[in-house]
Design a protein around this nucleic acid. Structure first.
Length: 472
RNA sequence: GCAGGUGUAGUUCAAUGGUAGAACCCUAGCCUUCCAAGCUAGCUACGUGGGUUCGAUUCCCACUACCUGCUCCA
Protein backbone atom coordinates (compact mmCIF):
# COMPACT_ATOMS: atom_id res chain seq x y z
CA UNK A 1 0.00 0.00 0.00
CA UNK A 2 1.57 3.24 -1.04
CA UNK A 3 1.58 6.11 1.39
CA UNK A 4 0.89 9.60 0.19
CA UNK A 5 1.25 12.54 2.49
CA UNK A 6 -0.07 16.00 1.99
CA UNK A 7 1.51 19.28 2.92
CA UNK A 8 2.24 19.41 6.60
CA UNK A 9 3.59 22.93 6.95
CA UNK A 10 3.02 24.86 10.10
CA UNK A 11 -0.24 23.61 11.26
CA UNK A 12 -2.28 24.64 14.22
CA UNK A 13 -4.08 21.77 15.83
CA UNK A 14 -7.75 22.53 16.22
CA UNK A 15 -7.56 23.92 19.72
CA UNK A 16 -11.25 23.86 20.25
CA UNK A 17 -13.98 21.72 18.85
CA UNK A 18 -16.19 24.77 18.57
CA UNK A 19 -14.33 26.08 15.56
CA UNK A 20 -14.65 22.79 13.79
CA UNK A 21 -18.31 22.39 14.69
CA UNK A 22 -18.95 25.92 13.42
CA UNK A 23 -17.18 25.20 10.15
CA UNK A 24 -19.11 21.96 9.75
CA UNK A 25 -22.39 23.73 10.25
CA UNK A 26 -21.47 26.73 8.16
CA UNK A 27 -20.26 24.83 5.12
CA UNK A 28 -22.72 21.97 5.21
CA UNK A 29 -20.73 19.08 6.61
CA UNK A 30 -22.75 18.39 9.75
CA UNK A 31 -25.89 20.00 11.12
CA UNK A 32 -27.50 19.55 14.53
CA UNK A 33 -30.37 17.06 14.23
CA UNK A 34 -34.03 18.16 14.10
CA UNK A 35 -32.86 21.73 14.58
CA UNK A 36 -36.11 23.55 13.73
CA UNK A 37 -37.92 21.52 16.38
CA UNK A 38 -35.48 22.57 19.05
CA UNK A 39 -33.12 19.72 18.32
CA UNK A 40 -32.76 16.19 19.62
CA UNK A 41 -29.93 15.44 21.96
CA UNK A 42 -26.79 14.19 20.27
CA UNK A 43 -28.21 13.58 16.86
CA UNK A 44 -26.35 14.97 13.89
CA UNK A 45 -27.32 15.18 10.26
CA UNK A 46 -24.76 15.04 7.49
CA UNK A 47 -25.06 17.86 4.99
CA UNK A 48 -24.15 17.94 1.29
CA UNK A 49 -20.40 18.03 1.93
CA UNK A 50 -20.53 15.75 4.95
CA UNK A 51 -22.26 12.99 3.07
CA UNK A 52 -19.62 13.13 0.34
CA UNK A 53 -16.81 12.96 2.87
CA UNK A 54 -18.46 10.12 4.74
CA UNK A 55 -19.25 8.15 1.62
CA UNK A 56 -15.72 8.62 0.35
CA UNK A 57 -14.35 7.19 3.58
CA UNK A 58 -16.71 4.25 3.33
CA UNK A 59 -15.82 3.69 -0.29
CA UNK A 60 -12.11 3.78 0.55
CA UNK A 61 -12.61 1.18 3.27
CA UNK A 62 -14.54 -1.11 0.93
CA UNK A 63 -11.83 -0.74 -1.68
CA UNK A 64 -8.97 -1.56 0.68
CA UNK A 65 -10.71 -4.19 2.76
CA UNK A 66 -12.83 -6.01 0.19
CA UNK A 67 -11.83 -5.15 -3.35
CA UNK A 68 -8.06 -5.23 -2.80
CA UNK A 69 -7.87 -7.79 -0.01
CA UNK A 70 -7.66 -11.38 -1.15
CA UNK A 71 -9.15 -12.81 2.05
CA UNK A 72 -12.24 -10.68 2.45
CA UNK A 73 -15.79 -10.48 1.18
CA UNK A 74 -18.61 -8.12 2.07
CA UNK A 75 -22.17 -8.45 3.33
CA UNK A 76 -24.94 -6.18 4.51
CA UNK A 77 -27.06 -7.75 7.21
CA UNK A 78 -30.36 -6.45 8.57
CA UNK A 79 -30.46 -4.05 11.48
CA UNK A 80 -33.38 -5.99 12.95
CA UNK A 81 -32.45 -9.47 14.12
CA UNK A 82 -34.11 -12.28 15.98
CA UNK A 83 -34.14 -11.09 19.61
CA UNK A 84 -32.67 -14.41 20.71
CA UNK A 85 -29.40 -13.28 19.15
CA UNK A 86 -29.07 -10.63 21.84
CA UNK A 87 -29.92 -13.11 24.54
CA UNK A 88 -27.05 -15.27 23.32
CA UNK A 89 -24.59 -12.38 23.26
CA UNK A 90 -25.61 -11.26 26.72
CA UNK A 91 -26.82 -7.86 25.61
CA UNK A 92 -30.31 -8.48 26.97
CA UNK A 93 -29.34 -9.54 30.48
CA UNK A 94 -26.20 -7.48 31.00
CA UNK A 95 -27.90 -4.25 30.18
CA UNK A 96 -31.03 -4.81 32.19
CA UNK A 97 -29.17 -4.06 35.41
CA UNK A 98 -31.30 -2.46 38.12
CA UNK A 99 -29.60 0.84 38.80
CA UNK A 100 -30.29 3.25 41.64
CA UNK A 101 -28.73 6.57 42.50
CA UNK A 102 -28.02 7.82 45.98
CA UNK A 103 -29.80 11.14 46.28
CA UNK A 104 -27.40 12.27 49.00
CA UNK A 105 -24.02 11.78 47.39
CA UNK A 106 -25.10 11.30 43.75
CA UNK A 107 -23.34 7.99 43.30
CA UNK A 108 -24.81 5.20 41.23
CA UNK A 109 -25.15 1.60 42.32
CA UNK A 110 -26.48 -1.68 41.10
CA UNK A 111 -29.32 -2.50 43.46
CA UNK A 112 -28.79 -6.25 43.29
CA UNK A 113 -25.06 -5.94 43.99
CA UNK A 114 -25.78 -3.62 46.88
CA UNK A 115 -27.94 -6.27 48.49
CA UNK A 116 -25.53 -9.10 47.80
CA UNK A 117 -22.58 -7.16 49.21
CA UNK A 118 -24.54 -6.26 52.29
CA UNK A 119 -25.62 -9.88 52.68
CA UNK A 120 -22.08 -11.18 52.39
CA UNK A 121 -20.93 -8.73 55.02
CA UNK A 122 -23.64 -9.94 57.35
CA UNK A 123 -22.90 -13.58 56.78
CA UNK A 124 -25.97 -14.24 54.67
CA UNK A 125 -26.17 -15.83 51.27
CA UNK A 126 -28.53 -13.85 49.11
CA UNK A 127 -28.80 -13.84 45.34
CA UNK A 128 -30.75 -10.73 44.41
CA UNK A 129 -30.30 -11.22 40.69
CA UNK A 130 -33.65 -11.78 39.06
CA UNK A 131 -35.77 -10.18 41.77
CA UNK A 132 -38.55 -7.82 40.82
CA UNK A 133 -37.98 -4.14 41.44
CA UNK A 134 -40.51 -4.20 44.27
CA UNK A 135 -38.76 -7.08 46.03
CA UNK A 136 -35.41 -5.38 45.66
CA UNK A 137 -36.58 -2.04 47.02
CA UNK A 138 -38.42 -3.70 49.88
CA UNK A 139 -35.35 -5.70 50.88
CA UNK A 140 -33.18 -2.58 50.88
CA UNK A 141 -35.61 -0.64 53.02
CA UNK A 142 -36.47 -3.52 55.37
CA UNK A 143 -32.82 -4.22 56.10
CA UNK A 144 -31.78 -0.59 56.19
CA UNK A 145 -29.12 -1.09 53.53
CA UNK A 146 -27.41 2.28 53.23
CA UNK A 147 -25.30 3.82 50.54
CA UNK A 148 -21.79 2.41 50.88
CA UNK A 149 -20.29 5.75 49.95
CA UNK A 150 -22.07 8.19 52.25
CA UNK A 151 -23.89 5.88 54.63
CA UNK A 152 -27.34 7.33 54.04
CA UNK A 153 -30.54 5.64 52.97
CA UNK A 154 -32.08 7.86 50.34
CA UNK A 155 -32.15 6.18 46.96
CA UNK A 156 -33.99 6.98 43.76
CA UNK A 157 -36.39 4.46 42.30
CA UNK A 158 -34.86 1.59 40.34
CA UNK A 159 -34.14 2.34 36.71
CA UNK A 160 -33.06 -0.09 34.11
CA UNK A 161 -30.63 1.14 31.56
CA UNK A 162 -30.86 -1.09 28.59
CA UNK A 163 -28.22 -0.17 26.12
CA UNK A 164 -30.43 -1.44 23.33
CA UNK A 165 -33.16 0.48 21.57
CA UNK A 166 -36.39 -1.45 21.65
CA UNK A 167 -39.16 -1.40 19.12
CA UNK A 168 -42.02 -3.58 18.03
CA UNK A 169 -42.34 -5.77 15.01
CA UNK A 170 -45.84 -6.08 13.68
CA UNK A 171 -48.80 -4.02 14.72
CA UNK A 172 -49.32 -5.14 18.29
CA UNK A 173 -47.21 -3.70 21.03
CA UNK A 174 -46.90 -6.77 23.21
CA UNK A 175 -43.79 -8.34 24.66
CA UNK A 176 -43.86 -11.09 22.05
CA UNK A 177 -43.26 -8.69 19.17
CA UNK A 178 -40.55 -6.73 20.95
CA UNK A 179 -37.34 -6.50 18.98
CA UNK A 180 -34.15 -4.48 19.16
CA UNK A 181 -32.15 -2.21 16.93
CA UNK A 182 -28.77 -3.90 16.77
CA UNK A 183 -26.22 -2.56 19.27
CA UNK A 184 -23.38 -3.79 17.08
CA UNK A 185 -23.08 -4.95 13.50
CA UNK A 186 -20.83 -7.89 14.33
CA UNK A 187 -23.59 -10.39 15.04
CA UNK A 188 -25.02 -9.99 11.55
CA UNK A 189 -21.72 -11.39 10.35
CA UNK A 190 -21.48 -14.26 12.85
CA UNK A 191 -24.95 -15.54 12.10
CA UNK A 192 -24.12 -15.55 8.39
CA UNK A 193 -20.72 -17.22 8.74
CA UNK A 194 -21.92 -20.54 7.42
CA UNK A 195 -23.86 -18.98 4.55
CA UNK A 196 -20.91 -16.95 3.38
CA UNK A 197 -18.42 -19.78 3.72
CA UNK A 198 -20.56 -22.11 1.63
CA UNK A 199 -21.74 -19.69 -1.04
CA UNK A 200 -18.34 -18.16 -1.71
CA UNK A 201 -16.52 -21.53 -1.68
CA UNK A 202 -13.87 -19.88 0.46
CA UNK A 203 -11.25 -21.46 2.63
CA UNK A 204 -10.01 -20.03 5.88
CA UNK A 205 -8.61 -17.58 6.62
CA UNK A 206 -11.53 -15.51 5.45
CA UNK A 207 -12.84 -12.15 6.50
CA UNK A 208 -16.40 -10.85 6.23
CA UNK A 209 -16.76 -7.09 6.02
CA UNK A 210 -19.78 -4.98 6.78
CA UNK A 211 -20.71 -1.35 7.05
CA UNK A 212 -23.88 -0.31 8.79
CA UNK A 213 -25.68 1.53 11.50
CA UNK A 214 -25.82 0.43 15.09
CA UNK A 215 -27.73 1.90 18.01
CA UNK A 216 -26.77 2.23 21.65
CA UNK A 217 -28.54 4.05 24.40
CA UNK A 218 -25.33 5.46 25.79
CA UNK A 219 -25.65 7.07 29.17
CA UNK A 220 -23.18 9.76 28.23
CA UNK A 221 -22.81 10.60 24.59
CA UNK A 222 -20.94 13.67 23.52
CA UNK A 223 -18.04 15.35 21.80
CA UNK A 224 -19.86 16.20 18.60
CA UNK A 225 -20.05 13.10 16.37
CA UNK A 226 -17.51 11.18 18.47
CA UNK A 227 -20.08 9.36 20.56
CA UNK A 228 -23.68 9.30 19.42
CA UNK A 229 -26.53 6.92 20.08
CA UNK A 230 -26.97 6.18 16.41
CA UNK A 231 -23.68 5.50 14.69
CA UNK A 232 -22.17 3.70 11.77
CA UNK A 233 -19.63 0.93 12.04
CA UNK A 234 -17.29 -0.72 9.60
CA UNK A 235 -16.38 -4.12 10.88
CA UNK A 236 -14.46 -7.13 9.74
CA UNK A 237 -14.81 -10.51 11.36
CA UNK A 238 -11.72 -12.34 10.24
CA UNK A 239 -11.96 -16.10 10.72
CA UNK A 240 -8.74 -18.04 11.13
CA UNK A 241 -7.26 -21.17 12.57
CA UNK A 242 -6.84 -21.25 16.35
CA UNK A 243 -3.22 -20.59 17.19
CA UNK A 244 -2.70 -18.30 14.23
CA UNK A 245 -4.87 -15.59 15.75
CA UNK A 246 -2.13 -13.50 17.31
CA UNK A 247 -0.27 -13.40 14.02
CA UNK A 248 -3.39 -12.19 12.23
CA UNK A 249 -3.98 -9.70 14.98
CA UNK A 250 -0.67 -8.09 14.09
CA UNK A 251 -1.52 -8.22 10.38
CA UNK A 252 -4.76 -6.33 10.93
CA UNK A 253 -3.20 -3.77 13.22
CA UNK A 254 -0.77 -2.90 10.48
CA UNK A 255 -3.38 -2.97 7.72
CA UNK A 256 -5.68 -0.62 9.60
CA UNK A 257 -2.88 1.78 10.36
CA UNK A 258 -1.76 1.80 6.73
CA UNK A 259 -5.32 2.55 5.71
CA UNK A 260 -5.33 5.70 7.81
CA UNK A 261 -1.93 6.80 6.53
CA UNK A 262 -2.91 6.16 2.92
CA UNK A 263 -5.80 8.57 3.36
CA UNK A 264 -3.48 11.25 4.63
CA UNK A 265 -3.74 10.96 8.43
CA UNK A 266 -0.78 12.44 10.28
CA UNK A 267 1.20 9.67 11.90
CA UNK A 268 2.15 11.79 14.89
CA UNK A 269 -1.54 12.07 15.82
CA UNK A 270 -2.05 8.31 15.84
CA UNK A 271 -0.99 5.73 18.38
CA UNK A 272 -1.68 2.16 19.35
CA UNK A 273 -2.87 1.30 22.80
CA UNK A 274 -2.88 -2.32 23.90
CA UNK A 275 -5.51 -3.29 26.40
CA UNK A 276 -4.15 -4.44 29.71
CA UNK A 277 -4.99 -7.86 31.09
CA UNK A 278 -7.55 -6.31 33.42
CA UNK A 279 -9.26 -4.47 30.59
CA UNK A 280 -9.59 -7.45 28.29
CA UNK A 281 -12.92 -9.20 28.03
CA UNK A 282 -12.72 -12.65 29.56
CA UNK A 283 -12.92 -14.26 26.14
CA UNK A 284 -10.40 -12.01 24.39
CA UNK A 285 -6.80 -12.92 23.72
CA UNK A 286 -5.69 -9.41 22.82
CA UNK A 287 -7.13 -6.05 21.93
CA UNK A 288 -5.34 -3.08 20.46
CA UNK A 289 -6.94 0.30 19.88
CA UNK A 290 -5.83 2.81 17.35
CA UNK A 291 -6.27 6.12 19.06
CA UNK A 292 -6.31 9.57 17.56
CA UNK A 293 -5.31 12.79 19.22
CA UNK A 294 -8.57 14.72 19.13
CA UNK A 295 -8.78 18.29 20.40
CA UNK A 296 -10.46 16.86 23.49
CA UNK A 297 -7.76 14.24 24.04
CA UNK A 298 -6.79 10.80 22.77
CA UNK A 299 -9.83 8.83 21.71
CA UNK A 300 -10.37 5.37 20.36
CA UNK A 301 -11.06 5.18 16.67
CA UNK A 302 -10.36 1.61 15.70
CA UNK A 303 -10.57 -1.41 17.95
CA UNK A 304 -8.75 -4.53 16.80
CA UNK A 305 -9.80 -7.38 19.03
CA UNK A 306 -8.94 -11.05 19.16
CA UNK A 307 -12.31 -12.52 20.10
CA UNK A 308 -11.12 -16.14 20.04
CA UNK A 309 -13.94 -18.54 19.16
CA UNK A 310 -16.27 -17.01 21.73
CA UNK A 311 -19.03 -15.69 19.45
CA UNK A 312 -19.29 -18.70 17.19
CA UNK A 313 -19.25 -21.04 20.17
CA UNK A 314 -22.05 -19.19 21.87
CA UNK A 315 -24.14 -19.24 18.70
CA UNK A 316 -23.48 -22.97 18.31
CA UNK A 317 -24.68 -23.59 21.86
CA UNK A 318 -27.77 -21.49 21.41
CA UNK A 319 -28.83 -22.73 17.99
CA UNK A 320 -27.43 -26.28 18.02
CA UNK A 321 -26.05 -25.50 14.57
CA UNK A 322 -22.64 -26.74 13.58
CA UNK A 323 -20.44 -23.74 12.89
CA UNK A 324 -17.17 -25.64 12.84
CA UNK A 325 -14.84 -25.52 9.89
CA UNK A 326 -13.18 -28.52 8.36
CA UNK A 327 -9.82 -27.90 6.76
CA UNK A 328 -10.13 -29.48 3.29
CA UNK A 329 -6.47 -30.53 3.22
CA UNK A 330 -5.87 -31.84 6.72
CA UNK A 331 -9.48 -32.70 7.58
CA UNK A 332 -8.85 -30.93 10.82
CA UNK A 333 -12.06 -29.69 12.42
CA UNK A 334 -12.25 -26.58 14.55
CA UNK A 335 -14.30 -23.56 15.58
CA UNK A 336 -12.48 -20.65 13.94
CA UNK A 337 -10.89 -17.89 15.97
CA UNK A 338 -11.88 -14.36 15.08
CA UNK A 339 -9.98 -11.11 14.75
CA UNK A 340 -12.31 -8.12 14.73
CA UNK A 341 -11.08 -4.79 13.39
CA UNK A 342 -13.97 -2.47 14.13
CA UNK A 343 -14.04 1.20 13.32
CA UNK A 344 -16.65 3.90 13.73
CA UNK A 345 -17.31 5.81 10.50
CA UNK A 346 -18.42 8.94 12.30
CA UNK A 347 -15.31 8.89 14.45
CA UNK A 348 -13.14 8.32 11.45
CA UNK A 349 -14.76 11.26 9.75
CA UNK A 350 -14.23 13.44 12.81
CA UNK A 351 -10.63 12.31 12.83
CA UNK A 352 -10.06 13.36 9.25
CA UNK A 353 -11.84 16.65 9.86
CA UNK A 354 -9.56 17.44 12.79
CA UNK A 355 -6.49 16.15 11.02
CA UNK A 356 -7.15 18.21 7.90
CA UNK A 357 -7.95 21.47 9.62
CA UNK A 358 -5.48 24.27 9.22
CA UNK A 359 -5.83 27.90 10.14
CA UNK A 360 -3.31 29.71 8.02
CA UNK A 361 -2.17 33.14 9.08
CA UNK A 362 -1.68 35.18 5.94
CA UNK A 363 -1.27 38.66 7.33
CA UNK A 364 -1.45 40.35 10.70
CA UNK A 365 -5.21 40.44 10.69
CA UNK A 366 -6.05 37.82 8.13
CA UNK A 367 -6.42 34.07 8.44
CA UNK A 368 -7.87 31.51 6.12
CA UNK A 369 -9.05 28.04 6.93
CA UNK A 370 -7.82 25.22 4.74
CA UNK A 371 -9.10 21.68 4.97
CA UNK A 372 -6.27 19.49 3.72
CA UNK A 373 -8.33 16.43 2.91
CA UNK A 374 -6.61 13.76 0.93
CA UNK A 375 -8.03 14.09 -2.59
CA UNK A 376 -9.53 10.62 -2.26
CA UNK A 377 -11.89 11.70 0.51
CA UNK A 378 -12.37 15.38 -0.34
CA UNK A 379 -16.06 16.16 -1.01
CA UNK A 380 -15.24 17.98 -4.23
CA UNK A 381 -12.24 16.82 -6.21
CA UNK A 382 -12.07 20.00 -8.23
CA UNK A 383 -13.77 23.31 -8.79
CA UNK A 384 -14.16 25.09 -12.11
CA UNK A 385 -13.73 28.85 -11.78
CA UNK A 386 -14.11 31.19 -14.73
CA UNK A 387 -11.86 34.21 -14.30
CA UNK A 388 -14.69 36.40 -15.52
CA UNK A 389 -18.40 35.83 -15.96
CA UNK A 390 -17.80 36.37 -19.65
CA UNK A 391 -16.12 32.98 -19.61
CA UNK A 392 -19.09 31.19 -18.06
CA UNK A 393 -20.07 29.27 -21.14
CA UNK A 394 -16.70 27.62 -21.56
CA UNK A 395 -16.40 26.93 -17.85
CA UNK A 396 -19.85 25.41 -17.52
CA UNK A 397 -19.06 23.12 -20.41
CA UNK A 398 -15.91 21.89 -18.67
CA UNK A 399 -17.73 21.48 -15.35
CA UNK A 400 -20.41 19.40 -16.99
CA UNK A 401 -17.84 17.15 -18.57
CA UNK A 402 -15.80 16.63 -15.39
CA UNK A 403 -18.91 15.97 -13.32
CA UNK A 404 -19.39 12.76 -15.21
CA UNK A 405 -16.26 11.38 -13.56
CA UNK A 406 -16.11 12.97 -10.10
CA UNK A 407 -17.70 15.53 -7.80
CA UNK A 408 -16.85 18.91 -9.22
CA UNK A 409 -17.89 22.34 -7.96
CA UNK A 410 -18.60 25.43 -10.03
CA UNK A 411 -18.34 29.02 -8.80
CA UNK A 412 -18.40 32.33 -10.63
CA UNK A 413 -19.47 34.64 -7.80
CA UNK A 414 -17.04 37.20 -6.42
CA UNK A 415 -13.36 37.68 -7.07
CA UNK A 416 -11.15 34.79 -8.03
CA UNK A 417 -9.21 35.04 -4.76
CA UNK A 418 -12.41 34.80 -2.78
CA UNK A 419 -13.42 31.71 -4.69
CA UNK A 420 -10.05 30.07 -4.07
CA UNK A 421 -10.58 30.62 -0.37
CA UNK A 422 -14.06 29.23 -0.40
CA UNK A 423 -12.75 26.08 -2.02
CA UNK A 424 -9.81 25.90 0.42
CA UNK A 425 -12.24 26.01 3.29
CA UNK A 426 -14.19 23.00 2.09
CA UNK A 427 -11.06 21.09 1.16
CA UNK A 428 -11.29 21.05 -2.61
CA UNK A 429 -7.79 19.98 -3.70
CA UNK A 430 -7.80 21.40 -7.23
CA UNK A 431 -9.12 24.65 -8.66
CA UNK A 432 -9.37 24.85 -12.41
CA UNK A 433 -9.33 28.37 -13.79
CA UNK A 434 -10.77 29.18 -17.17
CA UNK A 435 -9.21 32.42 -18.44
CA UNK A 436 -9.33 34.43 -21.65
CA UNK A 437 -6.41 32.52 -23.15
CA UNK A 438 -8.45 29.35 -22.72
CA UNK A 439 -10.71 30.50 -25.54
CA UNK A 440 -7.64 30.62 -27.81
CA UNK A 441 -5.45 27.71 -26.72
CA UNK A 442 -7.97 25.41 -24.99
CA UNK A 443 -5.78 25.19 -21.91
CA UNK A 444 -6.66 25.76 -18.28
CA UNK A 445 -4.69 26.46 -15.11
CA UNK A 446 -4.93 24.00 -12.24
CA UNK A 447 -3.99 25.25 -8.81
CA UNK A 448 -3.00 22.84 -6.05
CA UNK A 449 -4.53 23.64 -2.67
CA UNK A 450 -1.59 22.30 -0.66
CA UNK A 451 1.44 23.37 -2.67
CA UNK A 452 -0.16 26.41 -4.34
CA UNK A 453 1.62 25.32 -7.49
CA UNK A 454 -0.04 25.89 -10.82
CA UNK A 455 0.09 23.87 -14.00
CA UNK A 456 -1.35 24.72 -17.35
CA UNK A 457 -2.64 21.82 -19.40
CA UNK A 458 -5.02 21.24 -22.29
CA UNK A 459 -8.69 20.83 -21.33
CA UNK A 460 -8.68 17.38 -22.88
CA UNK A 461 -6.15 16.20 -20.29
CA UNK A 462 -7.79 17.62 -17.17
CA UNK A 463 -9.94 14.63 -16.37
CA UNK A 464 -7.05 12.19 -16.53
CA UNK A 465 -4.74 14.53 -14.63
CA UNK A 466 -7.11 14.81 -11.68
CA UNK A 467 -8.16 11.19 -11.77
CA UNK A 468 -4.53 10.25 -11.26
CA UNK A 469 -4.24 12.57 -8.31
CA UNK A 470 -7.23 11.17 -6.46
CA UNK A 471 -5.99 7.60 -6.55
CA UNK A 472 -5.16 5.98 -3.25
C1' G B 1 -29.50 10.14 34.46
C1' C B 2 -27.00 13.84 38.35
C1' A B 3 -24.30 18.69 39.40
C1' G B 4 -22.54 23.61 37.35
C1' G B 5 -22.69 27.14 33.22
C1' U B 6 -24.87 29.07 28.65
C1' G B 7 -28.96 30.22 24.99
C1' U B 8 -30.24 37.46 20.52
C1' A B 9 -29.36 36.63 12.35
C1' G B 10 -25.27 31.31 9.40
C1' U B 11 -20.94 33.36 12.70
C1' U B 12 -19.02 37.00 16.43
C1' C B 13 -20.98 40.67 19.46
C1' A B 14 -24.56 44.93 21.12
C1' A B 15 -29.01 47.35 23.19
C1' U B 16 -33.81 47.24 25.69
C1' G B 17 -40.10 46.11 30.77
C1' G B 18 -42.87 49.42 25.08
C1' U B 19 -40.95 43.28 19.95
C1' A B 20 -34.01 44.79 18.37
C1' G B 21 -28.46 47.29 16.02
C1' A B 22 -23.51 46.24 13.94
C1' A B 23 -19.47 43.54 11.67
C1' C B 24 -18.31 39.29 8.96
C1' C B 25 -20.87 35.64 5.93
C1' C B 26 -24.64 35.04 2.25
C1' U B 27 -27.88 36.77 -2.18
C1' A B 28 -28.68 40.23 -6.40
C1' G B 29 -26.76 44.18 -9.51
C1' C B 30 -22.58 47.35 -11.15
C1' C B 31 -17.41 46.73 -11.47
C1' U B 32 -13.42 43.30 -11.76
C1' U B 33 -7.99 39.48 -16.50
C1' C B 34 -5.31 34.71 -10.87
C1' C B 35 -5.38 34.42 -4.24
C1' A B 36 -10.73 37.73 0.93
C1' A B 37 -10.75 44.93 -3.82
C1' G B 38 -14.76 48.59 -4.26
C1' C B 39 -19.95 50.57 -4.73
C1' U B 40 -25.41 49.79 -4.27
C1' A B 41 -29.43 47.04 -2.64
C1' G B 42 -31.30 42.83 -0.08
C1' C B 43 -32.17 38.32 3.16
C1' U B 44 -31.75 36.62 8.05
C1' A B 45 -32.39 36.46 15.17
C1' C B 46 -34.53 37.25 20.82
C1' G B 47 -34.47 28.16 21.95
C1' U B 48 -39.86 26.32 23.35
C1' G B 49 -44.09 26.69 26.52
C1' G B 50 -46.33 28.83 30.69
C1' G B 51 -46.62 32.80 34.56
C1' U B 52 -46.24 38.06 36.51
C1' U B 53 -47.54 42.66 33.77
C1' C B 54 -51.60 47.23 30.26
C1' G B 55 -47.29 45.27 27.69
C1' A B 56 -41.82 40.29 28.41
C1' U B 57 -36.31 39.29 24.18
C1' U B 58 -35.58 41.53 29.20
C1' C B 59 -38.37 39.36 35.55
C1' C B 60 -40.13 34.21 37.47
C1' C B 61 -41.11 28.81 36.44
C1' A B 62 -40.88 24.49 33.50
C1' C B 63 -39.04 22.13 29.30
C1' U B 64 -35.40 21.76 25.47
C1' A B 65 -30.56 22.21 23.31
C1' C B 66 -25.35 23.11 23.85
C1' C B 67 -20.65 23.35 26.92
C1' U B 68 -17.86 21.38 31.49
C1' G B 69 -17.38 17.31 35.19
C1' C B 70 -19.27 11.42 37.04
C1' U B 71 -20.41 5.97 33.66
C1' C B 72 -19.05 3.30 28.74
C1' C B 73 -16.60 2.32 24.31
C1' A B 74 -16.72 1.98 17.64
Amino acid sequence: MSVKTHKKGIRDMVDSMEKLVALCKNRGFVYAGSEIYGGLSNTWDYGPLGVELKNNIKKAWMKKMVQENKYNVGIDAAILMNPEVWVTTGHVSTFADPLIDCKECKTRHRADKLIEEWATKHGKDVIADGWTDEETVKYINDNNIVCPVCGKLNFTAIRKFNLMFKTFQGTTEDAKSEIYLRPETAQGIFVNFKNVLRTTRRKLPMGICQQGKAFRNEITPGNFIFRTREFEQMEIEFFCKPGTDLEWHEYWKETCKQFLLALGAHEENIRFRNHTKEELSFYSNATADIEYKFPFGWGEVWGIADRTNYDLSRHMEATKQDLTYTDPETNEKYVPFVIEPSVGVDRLMLMFLCDSYEEEKIAEDDTRVVMHFHPAIAPYKAAVLPLSKKLSEKAIELHKELSKTFMCDYDEAGSIGKRYRREDEIGTPYCITVDFDTLEDNQVTIRDRDTMEQVRIPISEVEEWISKKIEY
